[in-house]
Design a protein around this nucleic acid. Sequence first.
DNA 1: GCAATATAGTTTAGGCTTAAAATAATTTGT
DNA 2: ACAAATTATTTTAAGCCTAAACTATATTGC
Lengths: 169, 169
Amino acid sequence: MDDLAQPLDRESAADSQPASHKAELRLWLRLLTCSTLIENGVRKRLRETFDVTLPRFDLMAQLDKVQDGMTLGELSRRMMVSNGNITAIVDALVAQGLLHRQSALHDKRAQIVSLTETGRMAFGTMAAAHENWIASAFGDLTTWELDQLMDLLARAKHSAATAFAAGET
Amino acid sequence: MDDLAQPLDRESAADSQPASHKAELRLWLRLLTCSTLIENGVRKRLRETFDVTLPRFDLMAQLDKVQDGMTLGELSRRMMVSNGNITAIVDALVAQGLLHRQSALHDKRAQIVSLTETGRMAFGTMAAAHENWIASAFGDLTTWELDQLMDLLARAKHSAATAFAAGET
DNA sequence: GCAATATAGTTTAGGCTTAAAATAATTTGT
DNA sequence: ACAAATTATTTTAAGCCTAAACTATATTGC
């Protein structure tokens, strides 16, 4: 009987009264909460234990993954922050003797930054502690749950990247 | 045969050579990537479409959830940012006529902030667009996958909250 | 070759963020 | 009652972040 109240054209009805997406909204808020919770926890421990900021640690982590350093632009892309931002963080780490800066051989515009020996050792110490903090943050999850999350977040990452890339320059 | 190479005491071996937690580390990086991807996308769209910053939108979102406003401290806790931060954001929104500020009746220290009528309408418009952006960010995931993620992130949230709360004041 | 375009990095202005210290008001313990 | 501790907010200094404008170098298309 209630069917009589339904509009004949479902599509136009969907347009005039758009579908609710509260589930996605709640998921986003929960994702953000998790992320912020861990990020704030790590930030605080890095400061208290090693007197280092999270952005500087993150930058060193990117450099630790490669042998021969990388350009500022590559750091910017990998860290997903704007390029104007990298300059100051690199400046600070170079001033502390943790980073080495050199012009690229075949491109006078570009600069290659890499960890100094001091920097690589300092990062090694911090990274070991960091790994334990993260392990304990996920300590209540089983291996199976970790794998599930990895898989679902991979799909979410791809979905979001596609959605937000649509209509870019 | 290889068993002969194993130490007799597994516990002490685990201490001298701590377990690797690369899986948790990769999960954290993926979670952070997802979060940053969506956050940056939303930030850009809010600026381009409504000329508003993400922190101001987030603050209005908190106030929109309640009828009678809340104190600055409550905003600080809910948004998981430091309290000194809230002051400036509220100041800006009050100056734009989007927020109302009043002293709490029974506590002269506290101030209650709430959305003005203008603020609530402006937020309504932005929230509708925001909801669609988030829906499209998760557009590739099935309902079942959304539910799975919600559940797993709830566990992760609880785990991380417990881990980082240990040893606090 | 050379002008137009693109890329690498820096600088600037404005805004967000934190931690820590300061102010003011409330609550607690005696 | 009243001193001590707590709570709400603001202020400060330092650092991170973005977008946009700018400089310098490289690449592309005639």
